[in-house]
Design a protein around this nucleic acid. Structure first.
Lengths: 353, 353
DNA sequence: CTGAAAGCGCTAACAT
DNA sequence: ATGTTAGCGCTTTCAG
């Protein structure tokens, strides 16, 4: 960490007083003129605006918010080191705020609770109008203690306090969607390769908040049961990696499980699965169809054949979360967990084209 | 005298005045006490700190920076929609700024020049102490017109104004490094599969700033020439995708090019290349070694075999850029382009292990 | 329609 | 060692 010195004496910014002087009016009039307040003659207004333009006047947001009590900025605390969830969520949030002219103060807590507290008090001292807490897992995270005039929305990882507002993606629906798609393709013997099943702790069990692996599985099982089916072979959990996808697929094949489709709980697993199927000369999708989760950029569209996948729509998550936050800032807080629907992206790993 | 309210029931934030009153001291003393200024007795200081703690006092950053003239915040404008470059760069910058003292205002311009200008004036009105402009390509980008008391550092995509400070990764060195590693593994017949060669426009030609594909190629050719070698087969450019990697590799094989190693200009291409090699029964790395660029999380480590790759160290880019920005904020601006070294990450696609 | 004056919350000279 | 006072740049009554 490098030391920061006192301000460098550089060119000073033009103040409103200077603009007023240049336009030959008082401070108050200049302020009204620039803020489109009513009690200013058109001629004066124009004169002030021209002076401001000429001096390239930029209003001081600090001074403004000292008065208004509003900063038109929101704080985002994330623990997402890859930017995978965070970036699309921020994009969505920016879209929403764009209208209101808002700035995002971004902090990365790197999953460290202490760092998170530091960032939090920092953002509070900056008087952010609201907070977006972006997790990188679907498991619930501890409620954050924040003065209750500052609204908070939890994104991706919900708060463990049911009264808080959380926006998450619907992994149960995602699991269902995967199976239903395969069924619609005429597949009936559907195997499932799980991701990493972080055993939910007592806390999460109480809340009934399973890991994303469990949630996706629950959805898939539900869809199977509704069709009067059971998964082909045992469902195993290990990691969210290609190598696990390879290993799990080899297991299925070596144990002579009879299957014509595989739900892989992430695209990496699906890629590993496809590799092994191709290695064994099994054609995709005619003999075995493969579907993934997450619709990851580098993994799904460019697979061979391109991989059908369930997109969690993180950008939509950002939109909805931002809207909830704006509502709360405007005095209409949301409560509880809001689930965002996923989207099926059909490609050739399930559809012969 | 206003009653002191507990933090959770109060709507208004506690001010320093309230803390001072609670501690029975003046405003000035309270300020000194909390800012560890010298002229306060230990007893008083403790009393004030306790009062502040009890009232959960949070200083108002707006008021502070109205006085100090600095906001302890920097603005970041990015056009990186995936967060791939931006996130690690932000992490590096956060490290450098020290988590407790600085905030990052993040804006995404989505490659839109107008939106960029909007964000820029927004950040300026917020009096950011400096600006980090993060591109998503290695090609130079237009210089940004900013009042010269606000320092700017361009990251990843350099400014087209040589007087500006830019921090970029050294793709020439990366290209060299890839070839030299293969040479050190005993390979001599090295093929190269290029990425997307965005034809540099007249502007870039003048600046001598080739695309990253060209830069990497130049480095690789340099290393080959120094070893008295030429690339095996023609070097082709198309896209940064796996399918191009597959196509290019098939071309090499079908045209009977004699090669024992391939430099792929990104990990996706390398993955496609490996797939085709395996498909044709060519063993990696004993018959043909494969090396990629970028060391992408989901692509390189989990390939089969794991893919050796050149890491562009974006986090280091963030560190260096942040340091340059801090220097500039402190009145010691950097000028010109600074190149950051890459790092070779050895895995089994080049090394039998 | 325009301007003088009172702060927003805080720090930094200057008293005491 | 502590208190008083004058602003930082701006908006907003409230007089003219």
């Amino acid at each position: 960490m490098t030391a920061v010195e006192p301000p460098h004496s550089g060119t000073r910014k033009t103040t409103l007083a200077e603009v007023a002087a240049a336009a030959g009016v008082s401070l108050a009039t200049a302020s009204k003129a620039l803020n489109n307040q009513p009690r200013v003659s058109d001629a004066t207004r124009r004169r002030v605006q021209e002076a401001a333009e000429k001096l390239s006047y930029i209003p001081n947001a600090q001074a403004q918010s000292l008065i208004s009590g509003r900063t038109n900025s929101i704080g985002v605390i994330t623990s997402d080191l890859t930017g995978r969830f965070c970036t699309p969520i921020l994009l969505g949030a920016e879209d929403e705020f764009g209208v209101t002219s808002n700035t995002v103060l971004l902090c990365n807590a790197r999953g460290d609770a202490l760092l998170e507290r530091n960032h939090l008090s920092f953002l509070l001292s900056r008087n952010v109008d609201g907070l977006l807490i972006v997790g990188d897992e679907t498991d619930p995270r501890p409620h954050l203690d924040v003065p209750d005039n500052v609204p908070v929305v939890y994104v991706y990882a919900p708060s463990d306090n049911a009264d808080d507002c959380s926006v998450v993606c619907d992994n149960v629906e995602a699991g269902e969607m995967a199976v239903n798609h395969l069924l619609s393709c005429g597949k009936r013997k559907i195997a499932i390769i799980g991701g990493s099943d972080t055993t939910p702790n007592a806390h999460n069990l109480l809340l009934g908040s399973p890991s994303s692996a469990q949630a996706r599985l629950n959805g898939s099982l539900k869809a199977l049961h509704e069709a009067g089916l059971e998964p082909a072979g045992p469902v195993r959990f290990s990691q969210w990696t290609e190598s696990w996808g390879r290993a799990a697929t080899r297991l299925l094949l070596d144990q002579n499980v009879d299957f014509d489709a595989v739900v892989c709980q992430c695209d990496g697993i699906a890629r590993g699965c496809m590799d092994v199927l191709k290695e064994r000369g099994i054609s995709i999708p005619s003999q075995v169809a493969v579907i993934g989760h997450d619709n990851r950029d580098m993994l799904a569209p460019d697979a061979d054949p391109p991989l059908t996948s369930i997109d969690n729509c993180p950008e939509e998550l950002g939109h909805v979360a931002a809207r909830a936050l704006i509502d709360a800032i405007n005095g209409r807080p949301h409560h509880g967990v809001e689930s965002i629907s996923c989207r099926l992206v059909q490609r050739e790993s399930t559809l012969p084209m």
